[in-house]
Structure formats: C-alpha cells, structure tokens
Amino acid sequence: EPLWIRPDAPSRCTWQLGRPASESPHHHTAPAKSPKILPDILKKIGDTPMVRINKIGKKFGLKCELLAKCEFFNAGGSVKDRISLRMIEDAERDGTLKPGDTIIEPTSGNTGIGLALAAAVRGYRCIIVMPEKMSSEKVDVLRALGAEIVRTPTNARFDSPESHVGVAWRLKNEIPNSHILDQYRNASNPLAHYDTTADEILQQCDGKLDMLVASVGTGGTITGIARKLKEKCPGCRIIGVDPEGSILAEPEELNQTEQTTYEVEGIGYDFIPTVLDRTVVDKWFKSNDEEAFTFARMLIAQEGLLCGGSAGSTVAVAVKAAQELQEGQRCVVILPDSVRNYMTKFLSDRWMLQKGFLKEEDLTEKKPWWWHLRVQELGLSAPLTVLPTITCGHTIEILREKGFDQAPVVDEAGVILGMVTLGNMLSSLLAGKVQPSDQVGKVIYKQFKQIRLTDTLGRLSHILEMDHFALVVHEQIQYHSTGKSSQRQMVFGVVTAIDLLNFVAAQERDQK
C-alpha cells in the first residue's frame, strides 16, 4: 500500500453525458421521505430548503428570480454533511469501515464536522487534520463531537509532509485500522450531490432553472449537481466560483495573481482535486475576500440567511453572472454553511477592521482624538531585521541585547519573508524542534498583521487588541530589464502597544 495517494490523481470516472444510468458502476440512493420521529440526527441530513432572495437581486438590477439552496440546514450545519454520511455509508457497505475503526480526514473543517457527527452516532474514533487558518468555532464544535484535532501550517503546499493532507496520511500509516475516506478522491463525494442535492433542486424548481452558481473546494458539490442538471435540464448554465489565490478556475489566465492566501474558508485549493470535473462548468468567476464577507453580511442583514463567507462569494458572483438572465428565468445559488463557524471572524466588526474589510468610518461609535491620525505620526525608528541564514542562537542574543521581542526576517534585497519572535524561538528550542545552530528560517511564521503608514491609529489599535505587534510595510514598484514591473513589500518598522501608548501619553502631556 502506498504511503500516500495524491489528492489530485487523474480521475478514473467514466461518467458521460447521455450515458444510461443503468451502466453506472456505483451504488445510487434515492431521496427517502422522513418519518415524523427521526431514529437519529443523521436522518436530518439532506432535504434542505430552497429560499427566495428578495432584496439583493433587485438591489443589483437582476431581472431573474434568485433562489438560495440553504445547505446550513443540514444536521452539522453545512453541505459537507451529505458527503460525510455518504462516504461512511459506502465504506461500511463495501466492508472497508468496521466497528471500532478510526476515521482520519484532512479538511478545512466542515467535512470534519460532518464526519465527527456521523462518527459520534456510529461509534468510530475520528481524527481531523486541518490548517491553522480555520476558525476556532470549527475546532470547538469538533472537540465537542469527540474528534481529535491536529493543526497544520496554512501556507504548507498540499504535497508537503507538513500539509493537512501529508499529516493525515502519516497518521494513517501509524494508526492500525485507520482510514482516510479522502473527500478529494472519493466518488461518494460527487455521488452524494448527484443522487440527492441535484434531485432536490430539480424537484423544488419543478425542473425549471436557467443558471446554477456554486463555490468550489473539493469540487464534489458542483460536479455532482452539474452532471445531473446537464442530464435533466441541459439549458442550465453552470457557474463556478473560485477565490483569488486558488488555481481551480479555467482558463488558467484567471488564476494569475501574486496573491497566495485568502481568508474565506472551505473553497479554493492549490491543486485540482480528483473529484472535480471542470468540463461540466460553463464559466468560472474569481471572487475576493472583501466581496465575500460584504455579501455574507448582506445576506444575514437583508435576507435573514445566517450563512458563512463562501455563501457571500457565491452570491457576489451570482449578481454578476445572472445579469444575462431575463424576467421569468431563474438562478439558484448554493449557500454551503452557517455563520456559526465564523462568529469571531467576519461577523465581528473588530475582525473586519483588522483585516481591512471594514473602515473605521463605517462604525458610528465615538472615537478618541488620536483615532484618525496616521501611523506615520508615530515617528517610528528604523527596524531591526535579520536574514533567514542567521542562526536561532545568534538571533536570540541580538533580540535580548537590543531589547526586542520580535524581528522581521528579510532577504538580501529587503523583501519581507516573515517574522521571528523570542517566545516562538525559545519554545521551539525547548520542544526540540530546532537547535541553536539551525537557521532562523526554520522558525519563520507568517501569521502576523501588516499595516501601512497611511493607515489610521484606530486601525492599529484594533490590531493591537488581539496581537502583540504589527509590521509596518510599504510597497515598492521595481522595474526589470524586460520592461515588466513587480510590486514588493518592504519593512518600514515594527509597532507595539507600548509605542502607541507612549505616543498618546506624550501628545497629551505636551497639550497640557
């Protein structure tokens, strides 16, 4: 057995438009009618409502009807409940999964919650491996369901041993009777949507819809739904939504950006999952974080739909894509998950301010006199920076000697690579993860907040409520011999709460 199987392995699926269902090699399930009293909570997966979006479509000038398939009504709160249950049931049916076995899954959280929910009911041990950027709410729900959680670096490539995929496979090879159901490759993922989600949409719309818009992560949702719609409703256009920084969209030119990270969760990847059939997507749109969270908040405030950030991405694209539809036509959007997962993220004004998705003037509360002053007023001194090749031991000596707790790590040209902190280095040394002679590049981390000289002290204040420091950066445009230009970030300084307090105190003292 291989040590790991690539999540982007070539698909062996034989589905073709027009091929009889009787030739399918898979076990198919028909939607079942729910009894009045459910035998367990797993029976509350599927049969989610279709809700008309009344205000947002009109606000953006849509002539067509805009409908939302509300997947956050599933038992675990997301569309991923469907595939989690289906993968477990299919693994039980073919004898792969037996009582007492362990389920391991690399996930952005929602599939993990679905699997942990099913594992709690069915009696399996469950280990979820997820990147650090995923919300604390997801972690809390997983723990409450009895799952064990392993976190991995957000910026690790999918084929790196440190990625959530790599760590999951390492655990599988170490733990007896453990299984990775593997949402990236498992046919049960798109089949769950082909058999149930798509049929529900067709039934709820009486077979009449002209466009379907869905955000894409593993691709199982859009693949399964689109294949069924292509068979039953061939005139329906399928629109895929991919965040900026991901590479799922086609044509490839759409993916060209210097951005590699994004805040919206559960969609987009740096590889093409095996289950994603991009041939059934008629057109791709890219979405960005700001519009995703703005539209998610709009869905909550104006439509009462308590959905997550990827739902915002989907609707932001839908109001663009559906401009081509006329009166009497219908566009369906998939709202994948609930706001429950993001209470401390985009639902929080403070978080939105820190990330730059909300401006101070958007909030009406009274601010102190210094709130709208610029960061450049602080008069920061030149920063202490270190090269990635310097040793951890030497870096600790320098920081202690100069009285700093942290320093930016830059390359020879001064471009920011990340940050090192005294606390992080000492804990890594004590844990045996690094040696004093190791290069400081081994303990770089990139989960820090950046701020510009033109940003306000109010925004800085919000950042420092949650973080010990902020890195002050400025952009530099560099022209190359080819005539092309590129933008790079340079370090201007490091600012802490002490710097802000000293500035405010000094100004008030001078005024007296």
Rank of each mutant, 00 (worst) to 15 (best):
I239L: 04
I239K: 02
G240T: 02
D242I: 02
P243C: 02
P243T: 14
P243A: 07
E244R: 07
G245M: 02
S246T: 05
S246L: 04
A249N: 02
E250S: 04
E252R: 13
Q256K: 15
E258I: 12
E258M: 08
T260C: 08
T260Y: 10
T260W: 12
T261I: 07
T261N: 02
V264P: 02
G268E: 02
Y269E: 08
Y269T: 09
Y269I: 02
Y269P: 02
D270K: 07
I272R: 06
I272G: 07
T274Y: 04
R278G: 07
D282H: 02
K283G: 05
K283T: 02
W284D: 02
F285T: 02
S287N: 07
D289L: 02
E290S: 14
F293M: 02
F295L: 10
R297A: 08
R297C: 02
I300P: 02
A301T: 02
Q302I: 05
Q302T: 15
Q302G: 05
Q302P: 02
G304M: 02
L306F: 06
G308N: 02
G309S: 07
G312Y: 02
S313D: 02
T314F: 07
V317S: 06
A318L: 04
K320A: 07
K320V: 06
L325W: 02
Q329W: 05
R330W: 04
C331G: 07
P336F: 02
R340A: 02
N341F: 02
N341T: 02
F346L: 09
L347K: 15
S348G: 02
S348R: 10
D349C: 02
R350I: 09
R350P: 04
W351F: 02
L353N: 04
Q354V: 06
G356W: 06
G356F: 02
F357A: 04
F357H: 07
L358I: 02
K359E: 12
K359I: 11
E360N: 10
D362Y: 14
L363P: 13
T364Y: 13
P368T: 06
W370M: 02
H372Q: 14
L373K: 06
V375N: 15
Q376F: 08
E377M: 15
L378Y: 06
S381L: 13
A382C: 04
P383A: 08
V386A: 11
P388Q: 12
P388W: 11
P388S: 14
T389A: 02
T389P: 13
I390K: 05
T391N: 12
T391L: 09
C392A: 12
C392R: 02
G393H: 15
E397N: 13
E397T: 15
I398T: 15
F404M: 14
D405C: 08
A407P: 08
V410H: 11
V410C: 12
A413M: 13
A413K: 14
G418T: 09
M419Y: 14
M419G: 10
V420W: 02
V420L: 13
G423C: 05
M425E: 02
L426T: 15
L426A: 15
S427Q: 05
S427R: 15
S427I: 14
L429Y: 07
G432Q: 02
Q435H: 13
P436G: 10
P436H: 13
S437D: 02
S437Q: 15
V440M: 13
V440L: 12
V440R: 02
K442Y: 11
K442T: 14
V443M: 14
I444E: 09
I444F: 02
Y445T: 15
Q447S: 09
F448I: 12
R452T: 04
R452Y: 11
T454F: 10
D455W: 09
D455I: 13
L457V: 10
S461V: 13
I463P: 15
L464V: 13
M466Q: 10
D467K: 02
H468N: 13
A470S: 13
L471S: 11
V473A: 15
Q478L: 15
Q478D: 04
Y479N: 11
S481M: 15
S481N: 11
T482W: 06
T482N: 13
G483I: 06
G483V: 12
G483Q: 11
S485Y: 10
S486D: 06
R488L: 14
V491P: 05
F492Y: 14
G493D: 12
G493V: 11
A497N: 11
A497G: 09
D499Y: 02
F503L: 13
F503D: 02
V504W: 15
V504Y: 11
A505E: 15
A506L: 02
